[in-house]
Write a protein that binds this DNA or RNA. Sequence first.
DNA 1: GACCATCTTATTGTCCGACAATCCGACAGG
DNA 2: CCTGTCGGATTGTCGGACAATAAGATGGTC
Lengths: 249, 249
Amino acid sequence: METMFEPLGYAPAYLRVSEAIRSRILRRELLEGQPLPTETELARQFEVNRSTVREALRKLESNGLLGRRRGGKRLYVTHPTRETIGGGLSQALALHRARVVDVWEALQAVQPGIAAAAAERRSAEALAQLEAAAQRFAARKGTRELAVGNVAAFFDALGEAGANPVFTLLNEPLLRLLKPSLAVIIDRVPQARARIESAQKQIVVAVKARDAKTAAEWMARHVRDFRRGYEVAGIPLSTEVGEDLDVVS
Amino acid sequence: METMFEPLGYAPAYLRVSEAIRSRILRRELLEGQPLPTETELARQFEVNRSTVREALRKLESNGLLGRRRGGKRLYVTHPTRETIGGGLSQALALHRARVVDVWEALQAVQPGIAAAAAERRSAEALAQLEAAAQRFAARKGTRELAVGNVAAFFDALGEAGANPVFTLLNEPLLRLLKPSLAVIIDRVPQARARIESAQKQIVVAVKARDAKTAAEWMARHVRDFRRGYEVAGIPLSTEVGEDLDVVS
DNA sequence: GACCATCTTATTGTCCGACAATCCGACAGG
DNA sequence: CCTGTCGGATTGTCGGACAATAAGATGGTC
């Protein structure tokens, strides 16, 4: 027999509490930055034990809906940041055995669109950020790690310039996953830095001129270059992206 | 003054416990499907109180790294599902005030790539799934909600056919966010169903023929059609995608 | 042996009360 | 205005308790 009846949903108290808070945050009845009542107070209002409240809070905390100020004790209403999302998503992708070629393919699909959006809508400040990022990379100073960070910063700035939160949020996990292999490329492929630098320059010019088509084309070329980088560096495309096991909270 | 010193990091016990378990899951020392020791046992091993263990478990649970079987009591090691990720991401996008135009733009960027990947790599079963989804939509029966569900199922099947976990995971939240507005389109635009049906047919043909280029082109057209749908249906593109406030756990 | 009902035990969900560490805000002094 | 001090509030953690129920063992039936 097919499933005729759903199990009648009994939800444990800690879930109901976390749902209650979550829904008020989503409904914007609790605003970002606003401090949450103390645990004791919440326990009083929900008429449950403080331990139960704490379990609910831990859920919301790791969803990025609650957070605390640096070194602080109280919880504040927060919205999930790029980092929160990026951490969760890249963790999930690592577990699903995503390979560098998968991530690269996604990058190839997404980035030209992002570049186009950035060219169309970039503000003056966003453009400045983008130029700054490109220049920081072009300075060529610093370790491999720094260079990789600067590449990521360029993509981030571009995403930001597109003023599309979807792009901004999707960018982060992809870059995070590519970073390790990108570091290898920069190490092993002598001309990598120069090629990246020139691509960034072209993209900046196009974005500055609000030329979406050219921006997208250069970006497509740029991303294709990464793939050649993998080949030249001798990184098998089927390498699994490994989560770096860093703390995500 | 610039930040000269990092705060020396003290992590509360519940965080250290959850990190310890998380890292063993990511390292695949704990395998999917494997049952976790009981709370009491974990408390014994970590030498902390059971309440502390429980807080750690709640975190992992809402990260999708632990879950329980239907109606079950014990926790098992899990990998984050499409739904888990999709829930979190769409919630985040809703909070960041993503608008339908933002989501649409992302769809426009991603979907042609997905269609191309599907055409190149689709297995026989995946193709069958895709055809089934298209036929279910073409049947035209059922409510608006059912139709919307079938549209989403088509995109899902396509993502699956691409055999790229990145695409699979990115697809879900975008569709979830579009669903409500898509429902309005199907309601208000008489020719919507017919246009979707024909686009799906063309895409299926291209995927079947392993013709990546055509698949991508039709998909691009298909997505562009959605935008026209918004206009005809009188949905402002700047409408914020509203999270439906459904339980995500 | 395979299937089923029943019983026992183990485990989870929830509560209570307690206490040390420490963050917060106020307040006084240079 | 910055710095040092102080009391109170709040969090992190602990131990112990108990009801509800899922999981596993037991034994009977075909």
